[in-house]
């Protein structure tokens, strides 16, 4: 992997964590049960922490070699990367930016995505790339909990009441088409992920949808309409008061 690819990978990891963290943070103060409000805020906090670490690594990389890519505010920082890029430059997967929907969509999204992160970080922590080893190792501990927490909810909702079962099935139908983008090539990662999903779905009484159309575009900067609104809100102060310290 050359430096540009490495940089893009770091941005993808960081943007994913930031955007799904943003979505989780929207629940803060509005959760269905106080304990779960705390849990999902905690997950949001973990994600923001992961994003910061990956952005810092990306910033170091580009600051060392400013000629590498054009169009970035230099010297880059975690905040310049998060706050001063527009949606076409974001590299997150589409699944992270979709609106929260209800608790079924929210917890299923976290499950599908964090299970992906779990296997990805497991690979990254032992990869040759020193800039991500330590970050992935630390994040893996957090993600392990996210997978467990969200899988528990998927199972509870699947095997709960008629209404919760209907809602989680609807969530599967809605989100599944955004999972293909996580695995653009057939890979071991995808197999591991599928196995995990299969296991949890079985316990929840859910069925993996038949092969279906898969949306893609996030990693090349072709996003849904939702990302623009996230960024408008998130970047407002940095854009309205440029160059200020906060």
């Amino acid at each position: 992997m050359n430096k540009t690819q490495q940089f893009n990978q770091l941005l993808n990891l960081a943007d994913n964590a930031l955007i799904i963290g943003h979505r989780c943070s929207e629940w803060c103060g509005h959760g269905p049960v106080l304990e779960q409000d705390i849990a999902i805020s905690n997950i949001a906090l973990d994600y923001i922490g992961q994003a910061r670490n990956f952005y810092q690594a990306a910033a170091t990389l580009i600051n060392e070699d400013p000629e590498m890519l054009t169009g970035f505010v230099l010297p880059a920082t975690e905040d310049s990367l998060a706050y001063l890029r527009d949606q076409r430059e974001f590299r997150n997967h589409l699944i992270t930016e979709l609106p929260n929907g209800d608790w079924a969509v929210t917890t299923l999204r976290i499950f599908l995505f964090s299970a992906y992160q779990y296997f990805l970080y497991t690979q990254l922590k032992d990869s040759g790339d020193l800039s991500v080893n330590a970050i992935a190792e630390k994040a893996l501990k957090e993600v392990t909990y996210h997978v467990k927490w969200s899988a528990d909810w998927v199972i509870r909702l699947g095997d709960g009441t008629e209404e919760s079962n209907r809602r989680i099935r609807h969530a599967v139908d809605h989100l599944w088409a955004y999972t293909g983008e996580l695995f653009l090539q057939e890979s071991e990662l995808q197999q591991q992920w599928l196995q995990k999903v299969q296991l949890v779905f079985e316990e929840a009484g859910l069925v993996i949808p038949e092969k279906t159309w898969m949306h893609q575009g996030g990693t090349s900067g072709n996003h849904t309409e939702h990302l623009g609104f996230i960024l408008a809100e998130m970047q407002f102060l940095q854009r309205a008061y440029p160059g200020s310290q906060w």
């Binding site: 103060g29 805020s41 923001i48 998130m234 102060l237």
Partner: peptide, 29 residues
Amino acid sequence: EGNWITRAPSLRRKAILLAKVQDEAGHGL
């Protein structure tokens, strides 16, 4: 305060504010 989590002006401020609002939930508990 939760109003401003999604609009916090830096990632550090966002993390601190999120942790703070989460603390309030803990106090409620």
